[in-house]
Structures are given as structure tokens and as C-alpha cells.
Amino acid sequence: MKIAAIAINTFREAVRDKILYTLLFFAIAMIASSILLGKLVIGDQTKIIKDMGLASISLFGVLIAIFVGIGLVFKEIERKTIYTIIAKPIQRYQFLLGKYLGLILTLVVEVVIMSTGFILLLFYYEPSPDMDILKAILLIFFELMLITSIALLFSSFSTPIMSGVFTLSMYVIGHLTGDLKMLGSKSESAAVKHITEFMYYLLPNLENFNIKAKVVHNIPVSWGYILYAMSYGILYIAIILLISAIIFQRRDFK
């Protein structure tokens, strides 16, 4: 499989890069530091550990998705490594998809390592912790996949710095669209109302994937909801990848 070959090569590149280990180290350190923080808070210690653990998985996942994602395609063009690949019997979209899946593979490994550390820590504090946190991690992972696709989209036509800025903004906005719509609906101007509503449905709504607070407070989250959120993620990713492929297909590599 050509796509798999590209994906594995991308994964290999990430694995042989130091930045991954640095980030992983900090993530584990942060999860571990929740023990300390937990001690400072009187009462609900596992809440702090869960908060910190989930936040670390999400934050460091986002950092990796953005840091690696923005260079994903750009580096291949910059270093001209793409030249030899495009000259092989492979469609450009296959190359793009391979790069994407390669980074996703990297993220899977990363998230699994972090989650294992986190859950072991939980077991140390509670004999039988609520395994609903796995649902939260699952949705965090879908958020990461969506962010990666956005990083890839920008990376397919602009420099890493610009892509980084764009992707980061999308990440922030993605978490605020709900609030924006709410603010907009309070506005008197119909135009503002419509614009915020339009943006709400157009921009990625990353809050869909955020069930951290629910899970930490043991509020049930149905599988139906998880399914909706995952489908939303997959469809959104499909759209983003489609746009990336269109842009990528048309550009010159010079």
C-alpha cells in the first residue's frame, strides 16, 4: 500500500525526532505533578489528578499536532524530498493522506503512552476509578485528529510559521464559537446575529469534543453523544482533507 508506506515513513521521521520525546517528557512530568497539586487541595484529590491528566493529554497532543503538523508537507517541499515521491506512480492526494495518517499514528502512540501513565496514577489513588475518562480521552483524540487536519491544510500552502499561527487561532476560535454565537444572539443587529450563527456552523466546533468536566464530575455521557461527536469529527476531517487535496493537487512544487 502506497499510502501506508508514506504513513509509516512519516511516523518513522517523527519517532526519530527529538521534539516528540521532549514533549512526551513534559507531558508525563505534568501528569505526575498533579500528585503534588492534589496534595495542596483539601478534599477531592482525584478531581485534580483527573483535571490535570486530561488537560495534559489534550494540551500536549495539541502541541504535537500543531508542531509536527505544520511542517508535515512544507518540510517535504522545502527539503525537496517530495520531488522523488511525486515522480513515482502515486497520486498527490495519496501522498497527503499518507502524511496525515502518519502523524495520526504518531498521535495514537503518544496518547496511549500518556493515558497509560495517567490511568496507572488514578488506580494508585482509587481502587476502581470511573472508566468514563476513557470516553473523554477518545474525544480528545478526535479533536487532535481534527486539529492535525487543519495544520495539514495550512501546511499544504503556507510556511510553518503562518500555518502555526493559523492553526493555533483555529484551535482557540474552535473553542469559542459557542460563546460567540451566544454573544451574537444577544446582539440587536440581525447581521451580527447571522454572521455569528454562520460562523458557528462553519468553523470547527471543538467544544463538541470537550466532555472533560462531565467525566471528572461523574456525570454520565451517553455513547450516543460520543457517536455524534465522533461522526462530526470524521466528517469535518473529510472536508478539510478534501480542501487540502484540492489545493495540493493544483500547486507547483518549486
Binding site: 458557528y200 455521557v221 451517553s222 450516543g224 453523544y225 461527536a229 466528517l235
Partner: peptide, 15 residues
């Protein structure tokens, strides 16, 4: 599909 999914998500008790 995305649009209707978002509507559905907004209606779910989780949101």
C-alpha cells in the same frame, strides 16, 4: 450532514 450533526449535538443533554 455536518450542519445537522451540530444541531443534534447542541440538543443533546450532554451539551
Amino acid at each position: 450532514l455536518l450542519y445537522s450533526l451540530q444541531k443534534q449535538i447542541d440538543l443533546s443533554p450532554e451539551r
